[in-house]
């Protein structure tokens, strides 16, 4: 009896495995053709001496990767992008940590649901449109200038658009919702009794925050930081529209290779250098976050 069931199960398992493969294959075939194959082609491309469809014959070369070292402008611009990523991520962490905490702890239930919805909404709107809204606000003679001059007559234009500050403002605006949501979720998970215990044992609020709340919110901060840092380092549209001539970063250099200079192999190599640097930075910062969590134990 039992043996028959087991045997039955095994053949059923095999049949069900095939049914599983059949169900997932259309989606994964699509992903393979549209994402993974292009990425592989790009890896191959990054080792070519020229666009294959231009010259017909292209040699294998490391030159595209080496030109990153040979021309100091590339490391400098990559550093600019990484720094931009660090600044924007730090600002988002700082604001998002407290905003997420406040959202989870300081708002009554009904208001909380509404505010959560409001923070989720920008998430759905076009990033391009939100950057454009800052162009409208920040441009010389724009709304901010009018407001400042109404407050302080004769203050003149603020001239924020087409500066580094404008890029940072736009990017923080773009990625802050991610950080607030991940911080909010980990703040919700903090058990009230832990806070009560810490308080009743005589810890002051700042101490409770530093020793209990902060370590418990690190996972949320970490996820938010990754969700912010990676796209910011790769950004090109925001620096271009908000930074103008001062908005040259690594992302815009890559974009130029593909849309203006048409040196696709170099663009491909620079892309993978960027990806590698991003991965290394994340690998370095991951244990940092984990070690901090140990503090609670």
């Amino acid at each position: 009896m039992t043996g028959a069931i087991v045997e039955n199960r095994q053949s059923a398992d095999r049949a069900s495995a095939w049914r599983g493969y059949a169900l997932v294959s259309p989606a994964y075939l699509w992903l393979l053709l549209a994402v993974f194959l292009p990425l592989s082609a790009m890896v191959y491309f990054s080792f070519l001496s020229s666009n294959v469809f231009d010259s017909g014959s292209a040699q294998f070369t490391l030159g595209n990767y080496l030109s990153f070292i040979r021309r100091p402008v590339y490391p400098i611009l990559l550093w600019r992008s990484v720094l931009l990523g660090i600044i924007v991520t730090a600002l988002c962490c700082f604001i998002g940590l407290f905003a997420g905490l406040a959202l989870a702890r300081a708002l009554p239930g009904r208001a909380r649901a509404l505010v959560f919805m409001l923070i989720l909404l920008p998430f759905w709107t076009s990033g391009l449109v939100r950057v454009f809204s800052w162009v409208v606000v920040l441009r010389t003679g724009g709304v901010l200038d009018s407001f400042v001059n109404w407050l302080v007559p004769g203050a003149g234009p603020t001239g924020i658009l087409y500066t580094y500050t404008a890029i940072v403002i736009g990017l923080v605006h773009a990625y802050l919702p991610y950080m607030i949501i991940t911080c909010y979720l980990s703040a919700l998970a903090i058990d009230d009794s832990i806070l009560d215990a810490a308080r009743s044992l005589g810890a002051t609020w700042p101490r409770v925050f530093r020793r209990v709340v902060l370590p418990l919110m690190l996972p949320g901060l970490g996820v938010g930081a990754v969700l912010t840092f990676v796209p910011v380092v790769g950004s090109f549209m925001e620096p271009r529209l908000l930074g103008g001539r001062s908005g040259t970063v690594f992302g815009t250099i890559i974009e130029d290779q593909f849309t203006a200079v048409f040196n696709w192999p170099l663009g491909a190599a620079l892309s993978f250098i960027m990806l590698a640097v991003v991965l290394v930075i994340m690998a370095i910062s991951a244990p940092l976050l984990r070690d901090r969590r140990e503090m609670l134990k």
Partner: peptide, 20 residues
């Protein structure tokens, strides 16, 4: 990966394959 890799890289990769 499709979610985590910066879009600019995925976009360039697709452009390469589209031409290839």
């Amino acid at each position: 990966p499709p979610i985590a890799i910066p879009w600019v890289i995925i976009g360039c990769a697709m452009l390469i394959l589209a031409f290839w």
